[in-house]
Design a protein around this nucleic acid. Sequence first.
DNA 1: GTAGGGTTAG
Length: 592
Amino acid sequence: MTRLLQIHAQMITTGLAHNTFCASNLISFCALSDSGDINYAHFLFHQTPQPNLFIYNTMIRSSARSPSPKDSIFLYTQMRTRGISPDHYTYPFLLKACGRIEALELGKTIHGVLLKAALDSDSFVRSSLINMYTNCGSVESARRLFDKMSDFNVVSCNAMIGGYVKVGDLGSAKWLFDKMPERDLVSWSTVIAGCVQIGDSKKAMELFGEAQTLGIRVDEITLASLLSASAHLGALYQGKWFHAYIYRSCVKLDAVLGTSLIDMYSKCGGIETALTVFRLMPKKDTLAWNAIITGLAVNGYGERALQIFLEMQREGEMPDDVTFIGVLCACSHAGLLDEGLRYYESMIRFYRIKPRVEHYGCMVDLYGRAGLLVDALDFIRKLPVQPNAAIWGALLGGCFIHGNIELGEHVGRILIELEPQHSGRYVLLSNLYANANRWDDVRNIREMMKERGINKIPGRSKIEAKGMVHEFVMGDKSHPQTKEIYHKLDEMMKHLTLAGYTPDTSTVLFNLDEEEKENALGYHSEKLAIAFGLINLGPNMPIRIVKNLRVCVDCHSATKLISKIYDRRIIVRDRSRFHHFEQGYCSCKDYW
DNA sequence: GTAGGGTTAG
């Protein structure tokens, strides 16, 4: 831009500023280039006495992708009043703006206008129309238009696939993807992103495999989705492979891809690498800061997360609502009550961010973990919104940690009423009763679950070894290495007993006799996965496990001891956070 | 010129 300002100055002195061709190019650079400046483009535009069609198109195009797409509409009205007729270049930009502000009625009107002007046969205009309709939530209109088209071009197909993906109809998206005559990288990216969005990360990986077989080289956009899939799966080695791919293929590492990498490493327990990636990023936006703050928080490094937050403020990056979710989460997990309260206040008063239900959840968690259950309840009562299940869940968590049976029972009942189909709610209440040795109540809950036909979700643990993901359920005997695994498990148990471990059977759901309970615990999926890891991973490799549920008290204390006995780092990602076990300690400081 | 990407409480 500095260079451009010099050129502009020169143009003024030489009189070239009045030359339409030169003025157009100047505006075009400011409005469209990555190193341009949209505000300066507006400034130049206002100084132009008679902007021509090209200038209008450029300004409409630039505004359509700017943070205020409404400007495009304004510019369009202005050009019409000034008697300039829009052409087939104008409409795609204008329709993009309509889509972004979800102005369906306006979009329809423009559709009518361009029908009259007979511009609807232009393939760019058609694809833009399809995209406008899907962005405005009207997939049916998009489909009607799409069906009427005789020339099947790849862009309109992609726009249509994107429309299906937006409404979560991956079946139709995949159907069209398979049916279209030719697919380009955008087609692949769209379906891959679609899989990730509906939570089918495995399918996303499979599609990438197919693309690989066909020799398609993916770019930074596809990779961002694929890294997000790795993050969800907790597949560190898969994610690392993509990281290497980025370097190998000289893919542009922009802020979005950097954020995906940070998130992938954090969600796979590789928080040190996440930090390195973050430090090496030349341009960090709010999302990148948010990703590292949240990553540190769920990995149990609350203080580090807060340091980075302070750094963010020093560097003048504006925190948003998501930043504060990370900050509050960091405070509650690290037991920093006063800081949490202070940040919450500053979010509202200083940053003028209106708290959302997620922030309330963090606050209840903050009070609850600190043992201030009365304050937590008081906070919930004063909320301007109906508390949701997550808020009660946070309070129940606090009751559990601090052994408050009365309040816990009350909250547990509310939760079951609120989400009668959610098995975890019953399990939690039942565990609370079991902790208090109230076996009759435990049995009642079991009965209730049976009557309502609700099944407990079985615990599953995944572990990666030699490029393969292995999954275990409780008492699993399906793995080819079953014999060795159980042998190792016996050895582990012997070592544990020698180290003074006694099984904590308090949270076993069934009212079994003590010996049965111990057996049930001994074969919990994470213990099987640890045994598998000890057998198959080299002595210096940390054991990384991803669990679908929260880790139980018994497995937690057993894992701490195992990390010491076998001198092995064990990293467990459970449903809500990370546990880094090392030399008998866990990063969660036994609060989770 | 049109179509595809990242962070979010328990």
